[in-house]
Design a protein around this nucleic acid. Structure first.
Length: 538
RNA sequence: GGCGACGUAGCCAAGUGGCAAGGCAGGGGUCUGCAAAACCCCCAUUCGGCGGUUCGAAUCCGCCCGUCGCCUCCA
């Protein structure tokens, strides 16, 4: 089945065919660097990350360009307020942005061009537009002449007349037409400026994307993405500038726009100048990246979505369910591979395969059918809720199989083991297409809590918790990146959980339950199994 | 005011003409020292309201109610 993508320009789903077979050129509007990014940005970048991952899964080679807008009114204003330069401000937010994207598992773009590095290209584009009569200079500013570009308004679906009728802006008297927009702005005293044929100035608000996309991807893009709020005027203007400059149409084959995120039902979208934001950093402090992904992917990318604690909690449990299914299956395969029973001939009952009600009878088909459902959903304009449903169904099939094996207390036959292994691998693979890690991760706050708890226990119950062993646990190197402390956390948890097991073996349930409650207070769940214990992060 | 999108169970959310996916929560059961996880069973005769088209509509059309987006910086 062919991949179909909804194109904002035509308002229809269209079969996806890139300009050059097998190769996709994708440009996603990046952040304006005047402040921290919020979960609304995260949603957009997660959506396009999944689109890219799926295209690559489908065998396309993807060139993914994401710009940084590092020169613009608000940046100048903010830098001035903070007594810093636009360069320093931009550098700070770029670094933070990339760190946050990494934490969310957003794959790095192929290139991250910056507006200030594209000034010569911008000037060349503006000059060309002026030469072709598509732009005109006035007092050091240069405006785009919308009346000279007949297709203006097509993307946002309105005519120049309609736009004027609803316009709420004061018309600049220097404009020939109220909808003409600025390509180049004359510098005011004290503002950053570059020399140009029209005097010192800086780029307008939309021209940088035309310059950077053309420079890195050529005159035609396959996919151009962003939030629905940038359809007009930003993307509308980009079409006018780019096609006016290159003379090639269409500038973009598929315009893809994600729905916007709002903070509360019935309220406006989340946006920085309204102040109703949750920063990505705040979200990452509270939620596992998989939780944020499952939340975002639970609704279709074009639907408006509401950030709610309830929805995030549900997403957290859902992500956990997928993770548990894979981890349990993998542990079971590892454990049974190590046992002699699995190496030799399994009992006849296991060889015959599971009987009715034992589950697993459909396991060999489960992986294939999950993949088919997943692909059908993703092929239909990236229907991630449908794709997630396929993963949940596969997880259920895996759980039925592991449950049957655990209940049967017998080594599974080679065929069942192979089917289980395959199913778990497919769940991981398809999860990865959605950018899901399906692995626990412990936050620095939790590690600190674990440390305190371990110390406390070794002081109170040295009989169960050997202080010498605690001292022997190596602290993680200070310069290690986030996530590298995982081994350290693991060691602390094992230390605590093993002491707890000792108490339980002595049938000291009270101590065992108390420690379990303390760990749960840290967000770490310890479960007792016939063979020992398991832990995971909630 | 103009243009556009949406309204599906307690919550989140797929489904765009043929008997309502999935997740969370909830109820019952199995397992467990107790839990947790997992498994089994139950949980929308109904898709904002009212009309219409059709053998048949959550899905198409009309009107109404509600919410959001864009028209201005914005992912």
């Amino acid at each position: 089945m062919a991949l179909r993508v909804y194109n904002t320009l035509t308002r229809r789903k269209e079969v996806f065919e890139p300009l050059h077979p097998g190769e996709v050129r994708m440009y996603v509007c990046g952040p304006n660097l005047y402040g921290p990014t919020h979960v609304g940005h995260a949603m957009s970048y997660l959506v396009f990350d999944v689109i890219r991952r799926y295209l690559e899964y489908r065998g396309f080679r993807v060139s993914h360009v994401q710009n940084f807008t590092d020169i613009e009114d608000r940046i100048i204003e903010t830098a001035r307020e903070q007594g810093t330069t636009i360069e320093a401000l931009a550098a700070r937010y770029i670094e933070r942005f990339l760190r946050e994207m990494d934490a969310l598992g957003v794959r790095r773009a192929t290139v991250y061009p910056r507006a200030t590095e594209a000034i010569p290209t911008i000037i060349e584009i503006v000059q060309t537009l002026v030469a072709r009569g598509l732009a005109y200079a006035s007092d050091g500013d240069v405006f785009f002449r919308v009346s000279a570009f007949p297709a203006y308004g097509r993307l946002s679906g309105r005519s120049l007349d309609e736009m004027q009728a609803g316009a709420r802006i004061d018309v600049d008297p220097r404009k020939e037409h109220p909808m003409d927009f600025v390509l180049w702005k004359a510098a005011k005293p004290g503002e950053p400026a570059w020399d140009s044929p029209w005097g010192p100035g800086r780029p307008g608000w939309h021209i940088e994307c035309s310059a950077m996309s053309t420079a890195h991807l050529g005159p035609q893009l396959d996919i151009h993405g962003g939030g629905q709020d940038v359809i007009f005027p930003h993307h509308e203007n980009e079409i006018a500038q780019s096609e006016g400059y290159t003379g090639t149409s269409p500038f973009v084959r598929y315009w893809v726009h994600n729905g916007l995120l709002r903070l509360t039902e019935g309220e406006e979208k989340m946006t920085r100048h309204l102040g109703n934001i949750i920063t990505i950093r705040e979200a990452l402090d509270r939620y596992h990246p998989d939780t944020i992904r499952v939340f975002v992917l639970s609704s279709h990318y074009r639907s408006p979505t509401t950030w709610s604690e309830d929805a995030l909690a549900a997403a957290a449990r859902g992500a956990e369910r997928l993770r548990t299914a894979v981890e349990t299956a993998e542990e079971l395969l590892t454990a049974s591979a190590a046992s002699p029973a699995a190496a030799g001939a399994p009992p006849a009952s296991a060889q015959r395969g599971p009987g009715p009600g034992l589950g697993g009878e459909d396991l060999s088909d489960a992986a294939a059918s999950a993949r088919a459902t997943f692909e059908a959903a993703m092929d239909d304009d990236f229907n991630t809720p449908g794709a997630l449903a396929a993963l949940f169904e596969l997880a259920s099939a895996i759980n039925r199989a592991t449950d049957a094996i655990a209940r049967g207390r017998e080594a599974p036959g080679p065929e069942r083991r192979a089917a289980l292994r395959r199913s778990a691998a497919v769940l991981r693979e398809l999860g990865d297409v959605l950018g899901l890690r399906l692995a626990s991760s412990v936050t620095p706050v939790q590690v600190a809590g674990l440390h305190d708890l371990a110390r406390e226990l070794s002081r109170e119950r040295p009989d169960l918790f050997d202080p010498a062993r605690l001292e022997a646990i190596p602290a993680p190197a200070a310069d290690q990146a986030a996530g590298a402390g995982a081994a350290h956390a693991e060691a602390l948890i094992r230390y605590i959980a093993e002491g707890r097991m000792q108490a339980r073996r002595a049938r000291d349930w009270a101590t065992g339950d108390r420690i379990r409650a303390r760990l749960q207070g840290l967000g770490i769940l310890v479960e007792d199994t016939p063979t020992g214990f398991k832990w995971r992060v909630r």
